[in-house]
Amino acid sequence: MADAVMTGHKYVTPTRKRSGFRKMMERKSTIAFLMALPLLILLSVMVLYPFGYSLHLATLNKSMTRFVGFGNFAFLFKRETFWLVVQQSCIFAITAVVFKALIGFIVAHFVHNIPNKGQRKWRGMLLVPWVIPPAMSTLAWLWLFDPSYSAFNWLLSFVGIGPIPWTGDAYWARFSVILVNVWYGAPFFLIMYLASLKSVPEQLYEAAAIDGANWWQRIWFVTLPMMRNIISITVLFSLIVTFANFDIVRILTAGGPIDKTHVFATWAFWVGIQSGDIPLGATVSLFMFPILAVCAVFILRDIHRRGNEA
């Protein structure tokens, strides 16, 4: 008996090893990892490598021949334009996201209240700004803002206003880039909020109505708390995209007049590509990362804390 066990044991050991490997391969987590592996490799190549490379670039001198450590960062801190860009990027991103969220929320409510029959075509039409390539639609806006042939100025002339220097004056130029960004990005908020609104159970509104809530109280005490997670996610996502916006500012104002509409991406492009100082351009673009990372940490932590309350 003992022999048999021993003999069995002798032959079992290698089989166990094989079955252990097979077991590992059959484990759901292993399969999941292997299936995600191509994406992970793609992400590494497309994201991590450029990120690491820009970190490396940021530590070089203008001709990329000498390591300067934090020299580029120190140089930027002393430049007035840099602080102007920081300020403008924050104003641009925050104002645009607030208006996009607000308009998206209001329009989503209107669309939600349209009977199902007609709702589809409204949803389709309202999504149009978001599906047109922004470079193309911004060109159309550029014509609308044109100093000589502005359609807006033509319309405003009938009520005795104008002409407004849409892209020629610093404040109007900032207003214009924000306006175009809001026009382009609000449909994203609309569609996300509409989906979220549809998932709020109708009975909660009915319960609130019976509890004595008026329309505004139903929005404040039912709709907003029920949509909090989706609002946080969309705001975070849009904040990242808007902060890193390039095309709208580039086409509409190219950062002008006198750098007054530059945001990080356009200024990094200006400094790095157009002025030929690639390490300094890389340094500028790296400044977006910590700002967005802090936003992401706060918002995601809030979402995680609340968890799934449904």
Partner: peptide
């Protein structure tokens, strides 16, 4: 809201938050 009635729903309709 002005009828001064209270209702208990089939799926309770409690505010989850």
């Amino acid at each position: 809201k002005d009828r001064d009635m209270a209702m208990v729903f089939q799926n309770y309709a409690l505010y989850p938050h």
